[in-house]
């Protein structure tokens, strides 16, 4: 009873935090253009390399065709704003210099407080970077162009949009899990960076997961990080069966729930023994 009474104010406060962080990060247009330029540059390099591979391969029996891989590269660059290789710098500073104390003086659950902030920042960053990259990718000459979504199965595109939303929650909840693990630790960023890198590799950022060995495909489909980019992009390029789309979203949401639950538990335990640094 008491919980349900508290739920609406929490939601309202979180939404408010999300909004202010989004508005703030949307201001940084130079950073957005810089991010988009990097994305476009990487996209072009990747496409060039894949084109060479596909043209000169002895046997061409890959699970994805070259146009699918080209679209994959662009979409991955568009969606990359969701993902972060670091713990949110503002939150990390608060952990390190003891401003966690100020955050704890707010009548809010710290996990959802930070989740909303992180989410707001990421959506703001994603917005410009994603739009600019997508626009440029659609204007590229043939062979380098972002292809149209797979039209053989129309609901697939709707599932793709839903799946993007789920990917956003998944990336954010994983970032929050790492943040929770990082709390109360004074020995630097190494382990956090390793975990982020592992998640990036397993999310298909360096090589689309469907181009990995066939024997691994089962594991790659069900592991948590496929949902970051790979699963939604499969829906767009049409390399996932219609039934697989719903399953993929189910996998994304399940892992999101697991990350949120474990992040909250860890954060709660850390807060019990927290030492607020500084006078």
């Amino acid at each position: 009873m008491r919980r349900s009474l508290k739920f609406r104010p929490l939601l309202k406060a979180c939404f408010s935090l999300f909004r202010i962080e989004t508005a703030e990060s949307l201001q940084y247009r130079a950073a957005a253009i810089a991010g988009a330029s990097i994305g476009i540059f990487w996209g072009l390099i990747e496409i060039t390399v894949y084109t060479v591979f596909f043209l000169f391969a002895d046997r061409n029996e890959a699970a994805l065709s070259l146009p699918q891989v080209v679209s994959y590269c662009w979409l991955h660059q568009c969606l990359f704003g969701f993902f972060s290789m670091n713990i949110d710098s503002e939150i990390l500073a608060k952990i390190n210099n003891g401003d966690v104390g100020v955050e704890l003086c707010r009548p809010l659950d710290l996990y959802f407080h930070w989740f909303s902030k992180t989410a707001g920042k990421r959506i703001g960053r994603f917005w410009w970077r994603g739009i600019i990259t997508a626009a440029v990718a659609l204007l590229m000459p043939a062979g380098y162009r972002l292809g149209a979504p797979d039209s053989s199965w129309v609901p697939g595109f709707c599932l793709f949009l839903i799946s993007i939303g789920a990917a956003f929650l998944l990336c954010t909840s994983f970032g929050m899990l790492i943040t929770a693990i990082r709390m109360g630790i004074t020995w630097g960023e190494g382990p956090a960076n390793m975990l982020f890198l592992l998640s990036l590799v397993l999310s298909g950022a360096y090589l689309p997961l469907q181009l990995w060995p066939d024997a691994w495909q089962g594991f790659l489909f069900f592991q948590p990080f496929a949902g970051n980019f790979d699963l939604p992009i499969r829906m767009y390029v049409g390399s996932l069966s219609p039934g697989g789309g719903a399953a993929a979203i189910g996998i994304q949401l399940t892992w999101t729930a697991v990350f949120i639950a474990s992040g909250r538990v860890i954060m709660k335990r850390k807060l019990r023994n927290i030492i607020v640094q500084g006078g």
Partner: peptide, 19 residues
């Protein structure tokens, strides 16, 4: 206060946080 946003926005945010 939120470092980058106008004071008034910080206040509005506190309104929502403290309900």
């Amino acid at each position: 206060l939120w470092w980058d946003v106008p004071v008034n926005d910080s206040f509005d945010l506190l309104r929502d946080i403290y309900d």
